[in-house]
Nucleic acid binder design. Structure first.
Lengths: 132, 132
DNA sequence: AAAGAAACATTGCGAGCGCAACTATCGTTG
DNA sequence: CAACGATAGTTGCGCTCGCAATGTTTCTTT
């Protein structure tokens, strides 16, 4: 269950330091890579492994902050597109350093002992070569 | 993010078919393996990667169902022990087949394509041996 | 073409969680 | 030993989530 611990900690850091949840960040990135920086609600929900109602609320929050805007889909009047705004892209970019640092630190912590062990082995091998 | 999908699906099946959440099952198992089938709230919270308040509520639910009981700790009057009951152990055992089947099916689904590919390769190798 | 089934998004509702605040108890330190 | 900070557990509060139900639109079937 180490994965659970990592995701929990990353989530906490994103909330407190970046001002957005990891899921919100994930949605913004997904939109950024999408054709035209937009996606339908269902597609967004499927990719984020979230229920549709959950995605409705998440997009509500993003829209309130001006990071996305809903656009009616002309081909299917039931659907609506979720469009990433410039402010949304800027917010995503601003949040990236926090996420990067969290991942880096937690990863280092997770493999710390093994890395030290590997380093020690490498050093012993190097020393043997010199002596041989 | 395949792990997230698996845990979500396992959780849904446990809720609907076993009548308890995966986290509740996990706590019951933890108690079962613990010395005297009991553990302090903090220890339980740490092992389950849950906040203390979260564990308080989770144990509330288990206690309401008669699966655990709180016992004041004699050494430290601030603390209380969470004690697994016979009914709790029985409930844990009754829930195991559901969990086992869920894991088995989802694992099979996850590695399904790779397993088929491996099987095909094995067959080709076997046929080559016969022809050689 | 009309009726019924299916799909998209949203909303009401209840459940679970974490944070902060609180009470009670323990340990330490002057 | 008295005062202080630290710790165990609980509770109030707000947030997010999923399920079920709803309204609207599209697809299918006859």
């Amino acid at each position: 269950m180490a994965a659970k611990r990592l995701t929990q900690e990353v989530g906490r850091r994103m909330d407190s330091e970046a001002g957005m949840s990891f899921e919100e960040y994930d949605v913004l990135v997904t939109l950024e890579y999408a054709e035209g920086h937009r996606l339908r609600m269902s597609d967004l929900a499927d990719r984020a492994l979230l229920s549709r109602s959950g995605m409705t609320r998440l997009v509500d929050r993003l829209e309130r902050r001006g990071w996305v805007s809903r656009i009616p889909c002309p081909q299917d009047r039931r659907a609506s597109h979720c469009q990433l705004t410039d402010a949304g892209q800027a917010a995503r970019e601003a949040a990236w350093p926090t996420l990067r640092q969290a991942i880096q630190e937690l990863f280092a912590e997770a493999v710390g002992d093994d890395a030290k062990a590997l380093e020690a082995i490498s050093r012993r091998i190097a020393e043997q070569k010199v002596e041989a």
